[in-house]
Amino acid sequence: MTAPPVLSVGNLAKAYGGVHALDGVSFDVHAGELLALIGPNGAGKSTCFNVVNGQIRPDAGTVRLEGRDITGLPPRAIARLGVGRTFQIAAVFGSLTVLANVETALLASRGASFGLWRPQDGQARGEALDLLAQTGLAALADRPATGLAYGDVKRLELAIAIAGSPRLLLMDEPTAGMGTHERLALIGLVRRLAAARSLAVLFTEHSMDVVFGHATRVIVLARGRVIADGSVEEIRADPQVRAVYLGRSAATGERGS
């Protein structure tokens, strides 16, 4: 691939009281790619994620977005530069309608949140409806976000996250808390959106059926270091990965109900 990476992480380090959460982590994510970040608990996945997102400032190393150094910027600034994210426990704006959720995110991405006089209604309606159609929520546009089924909340959060037409989408355990069918449907939707928008997606995940079924590349973290980086097949076969993370049976991707 010759195009420059959307996200380039170089030599990230972060320690908490002597424990190295990240210890020289480097990797790239390219447009259209679904990169899964996996590893045992405490391996540094969350820290890595939050450094890229801007919630944590690293001790050392750089985060570059399309060549631009974004290390240490606050989350809202990183968001406006083209990074969307979803949370492990999906968060939406409960007191707004589904449509207003997306409109609010759209206007925020344009830096228009300080509009004080003209009603928001109608300022970004067309685009918001378009996003709802793409995520299969069009029929729910006028419903309050509180009280949606969890699967719909997840899709709404996805619509919010891509509202600013980001280049990079960060998803923290995107399918946590969902049943098998919903889980695969959601990751399928992410895959279609990523392809259509040539979006780079970085996600953490514990469900191996999602990782092995849908990731285009996998990175394995353990004790703050990258111990493997490769295709699904390579990762599945890697003896070190099997030893520290996958174990005996899970490499076959067995999980679900």
Binding site: G39, P40, N41, Y245, G247, A250
Partner: peptide, 10 residues
């Protein structure tokens, strides 16, 4: 088993 490594699950 939620959120722990497969090896711990074993």
């Amino acid at each position: 088993s939620e959120g722990v490594a497969p090896i711990i699950v074993e």
